[in-house]
């Protein structure tokens, strides 16, 4: 797989955007709005000139290469479909249409104008158009932000499948950590133009570099298979079972925040339905709290309870959380 390397510095209005980031699979940039996330994509696409440094693909520098000669598929936040062109003409603008209309299930919309489409349809057109270019790199700016909650989970699932199939270096930007964790192999937290931390989603939850990263990237994401019932039962990859009040079926991710999880040394019989037994892993102090890894999940407890439970010495512990404290996202 190709390797995209970002290494540049751009003076923005309020701060300087400065980062070094290799992109080999899907990397998500998360952070509060105004952190410079979109500017990163614009630099890669050649729409914004960096003050220093630049972007290279497999060692070939893109410095001075105009946007039209960089093989980049850019899906803009509001999709930026050409309003005066039909769906087919939008896709054909970038290159041969081929089977793209069929692949993205937009054949029946071929002659429609963008304004006649729903949010989900627009996104599929924007993706088809970006791929018509035959890009070496994919850039997605808030790919799910323009969608309502109902379509969002379905589209996220499709997008995840697509990115996995394409196997292109992909950089996506989102303000939603959950989307980032569901879509990306690696997540970078960007604050005021600087990368605070880059790591796999689970690693980011387990070992946040500072309090901001900890509060921003909170969620554990456990992969499993859901079965409908009175409560939804999810069988995790390691065989553990977890219950959720959310509705779901098939491949899902169970989202649970570290502060929803409590830790005990003994198996307690309380209203918390979900109990995961595991070895105590890393213990990281974040401000006045401590993040503890127990088996597949990371919990957040106060420093004093961590000391009382003697977590630093390892051993077996029980992580418990309520079914109501979980959310299910399709994967």
């Amino acid at each position: 797989m190709a390797r995209l390397l970002l290494d540049f510095c751009v003076p923005l209005r309020a701060f300087e955007l400065e980062l070094t980031l290799p992109v080999e699979r899907t990397v998500a940039l998360v952070g509060p709005s105004g952190a410079g996330k979109t500017s990163v994509l614009r630099v890669v696409a050649g729409l914004l000139e960096p003050g220093r440094g630049g972007v290279s693909l497999d060692g070939t520098s893109w410095n001075g290469v105009p946007p039209e000669r960089r093989r980049v598929g850019f899906v803009f936040q509001d999709y930026a479909l050409f309003p005066h062109l039909s769906v087919r003409a939008n896709v054909a603008y970038a290159g041969p249409v081929g089977d793209l209309l069929e692949r993205f299930r937009i054949t029946h919309l071929a002659d429609a104008r963008p304004r006649e489409l729903s949010g989900g349809e627009r996104q599929r057109v924007a993706l088809a158009r970006a791929l018509a270019r035959g890009p070496d790199v994919l850039l997605l700016d808030e790919p799910l932000a323009a969608l309502d909650a109902h379509t969002k989970s379905e589209v996220r699932h499709e997008l995840h499948q697509l990115l996995r199939g394409l196997a292109l270096p992909t950089l996506l930007v989102t303000h939603d950590y959950e989307d980032a964790a569901a879509l990306a192999d690696e997540v970078g937290v960007l604050v005021d133009g600087k990368l605070r931390q880059v790591a796999a989603p689970a690693e980011l939850v387990a070992r946040p570099s500072d309090a901001f990263v900890a509060s921003f990237t909170g969620a554990n994401l456990l992969r499993g298979r859901a079965h409908r019932g009175e409560l939804t039962e999810v069988t995790l990859e390691d065989g553990e079972r977890v219950f959720s009040t959310d509705d779901g079926e098939g491949e899902v991710g169970v989202v649970v925040y570290p502060w929803e999880i409590s830790i005990a040394r003994a198996h307690a019989d309380d209203s918390a339905l979900n109990v995961i037994r595991g070895e105590v892993g890393t213990v990281v102090e974040v401000g006045n709290r401590v993040r503890v890894r127990v088996g597949p999940v990371t919990a957040e407890v106060t420093a004093s309870s961590a000391e009382r439970l003697g977590l630093a010495s390892g051993g077996v512990a029980y992580a418990t959380f309520k079914a109501t404290g979980t959310r299910l996202v399709p994967l």
């Binding site: 696409a45 105009p66 946007p67 039209e68 850019f74 509001d78 930026a80 603008y93 970038a94 270019r133």
Partner: peptide
């Protein structure tokens, strides 16, 4: 004319001239 559409045209492989005649002028 929305600047994003101009930017989109460029990233889709169209140079400034093609962008002007196919996107900016029609809009």
């Amino acid at each position: 004319v929305d600047e994003t559409l101009v930017a989109a045209s460029r990233t889709l492989g169209a140079g400034p001239l093609k962008t002007f005649f196919r996107v900016v002028l029609p809009l």
